[in-house]
Design a protein around this nucleic acid. Structure first.
Length: 426
RNA sequence: GGAGAGGUGGCCGAGCGGUUGAAGGCGCACGCCUGGAAAGUGUGUAUACGUUAAUAGCGUAUCGAGGGUUCGAAUCCCUCCCUCUCCGCCA
């Protein structure tokens, strides 16, 4: 959600900024609604103030045992009119909210121009792309090992699920623990365990609702409950409706959760393998920051995600998303793309974003700024550190041997009981 | 799942349907007192929106959420959510 004050003061400027991400903001509709809102609000508040005055008089008169029928009639009349006005106001407010909630975040000035993935800017590359004569992808490798089973998963749950067995299952667990231990032990994050099912308010806060309901799995209808698409939702919502003190900041939290995505609208995309699943594991970093610190924090957080790839010795590049490719709530995003020999391309393995105050406003996440003495919206950031399923894919493909075995990255061996490779040749 | 109790300000805790944004206490802030501190004492201490140059005033809203009764609801009624206790079940 954008700052409604800024929106009122400079709708044209906001529209121009939103145009950078390919979003058309109907300023005329907004200004019209806003004017109607203001008029109705002022009028109905004045009326209510008058009614309150009369009500007080009634109380006083009755306390003295006097007749109050005149004032009661006045209040009654005001009440009728108020009902009308307030119904109108509620209608306008609803339209205004729908418009407001639908607006994406303003891109940061450093975000590259462009309207698609093709316009993203590569910031840096790390690592050496392995030179395989005939690389196999993780599906071929995993299935040959007998440890990756899409058919079994399909029998249980349909498409876009996987069953891992034995050392591959363990490798995924090792990756998870490895990531968590580094973020908590070296990067200053506090590990949190959070619900995997969340209510609609939580999803509204981080921006998934109301716009992106189709991407979610709903687990219960009555009091609605959704499976989380990312730990960002429950973890960021930890500060919902809170006013933090300056000394509480910054907050750095990390959580490992499964993530559930319906992948509506991506039929036929990445249908092979573990790249795009309905369910996957992810380690997620979340930071809650004072506004002036959020951009340095984005660099820091991105570095934390990169450090995992470096320790696993996986080649990757960092890409700054252009305006058109930016997620709805983000002001700026770096994607980390890992090299996948099976596809001979870089694929997203982490997305690190600064949401500035966009989520914080929806969440009511504030801090007491000592300079102003007032509660002000915080800045929220998050980034995958990393998507575990895709990391497993990257390890399998980058560490493959001609005989179909998988070497285990040095950094993971202690967590694999010293194992050096999976599927050693007979 | 069954039975019961309860949800009020940062916390605890009052609150007859009427002038209650809400007594009192704790905590916190500032001042007085003190050689310094403690104790004591005084004052202040929610948030959002609107109006405004204003983080000054004024207005409106908010006592779990939503709806209803009423001239008027923290107080009465209904629905839902949550917490606690006991029983049952259960990882």
């Amino acid at each position: 959600m954008l700052d409604s004050r800024a929106l009122r003061q400079d709708p044209g400027g906001v529209a121009a900024a939103l145009a950078r991400r390919g979003f058309r903001f109907d300023t005329e509709a907004f200004v019209g609604l806003e004017e109607a809102r203001k008029a109705l609000q002022v009028e109905s508040e004045a009326l209510r103030a008058e009614r309150n005055r009369f009500s007080r008089q009634i109380g006083e008169s009755k306390a003295r045992g006097e007749d109050a029928s005149e004032a009661m009639a006045a209040v009654s009349a005001a009440g009728e009119q108020m009902k009308l006005l307030e119904a109108k106001l509620a209608g306008v407010q609803e339209q205004l909210n729908a418009l407001l909630w639908d607006l994406p975040n303003l891109p940061h000035e450093s975000v590259p121009e462009g309207d698609s993935e093709a316009d993203n800017t590569e910031i840096r590359r790390w690592g050496v792309i392995p030179d395989f004569k005939s690389p196999r992808d993780h599906v071929a490798l995993g299935e040959a090992l007998g440890q990756m089973d899409f058919e079994a998963a399909a029998r249980i749950s349909g498409a876009r699920f996987v069953v891992l067995r034995g050392q591959l299952a363990r490798l995924q667990r090792a990756l998870t623990q490895f990531m968590l231990d580094i973020h908590t032990g070296e990067h200053g994050y506090t590990e949190v365990y959070v619900p995997d099912l969340v209510g609609p308010e939580a999803l509204f806060g981080t921006g998934q609702l109301p716009k992106f309901e189709d991407d979610l799995f709903r687990a219960r209808l009555d009091p609605p409950l959704y499976l989380i698409p990312t730990a960002e939702v429950p973890v960021t919502n930890l500060v919902r409706d809170r006013i933090l003190e300056a000394e509480d900041l910054p907050l750095r939290m990390v959580a490992h959760t499964p993530c559930f995505r319906s992948e509506a609208g991506s039929h036929g995309k990445d249908t092979r393998g573990m790249i795009r699943q309905h369910q996957f594991e992810k380690v997620e970093m979340v930071q809650i920051r004072r506004p002036e610190e959020s951009y340095p924090a984005l660099e820091e957080l991105t570095g934390h995600a990169e450090s995992i790839l470096q320790r696993l010795e996986l080649p990757y590049r960092v890409v700054a998303l252009c305006g058109g490719d930016l997620g709805n709530s983000a002001a700026k995003t770096y994607d980390l793309e890992v090299w996948l020999p099976g596809q001979a391309s870089y694929r997203e393995i982490s997305s690190c974003s600064n949401f500035e105050a966009y989520q914080a406003r929806r969440l009511g996440a504030r801090w007491r700024n000592p300079d102003s003495g007032r509660p002000e919206p915080l800045h929220t950031l998050n980034g995958s550190g990393l998507a575990v399923g895709r990391t497993l894919v990257a390890v399998i493909e980058n560490y493959q041997e001609p005989d179909g075995s998988i070497r285990i990255p040095e950094a993971l061996r202690p967590r694999m009981g010293g194992l050096e490779r999976i599927g050693a040749p007979a």
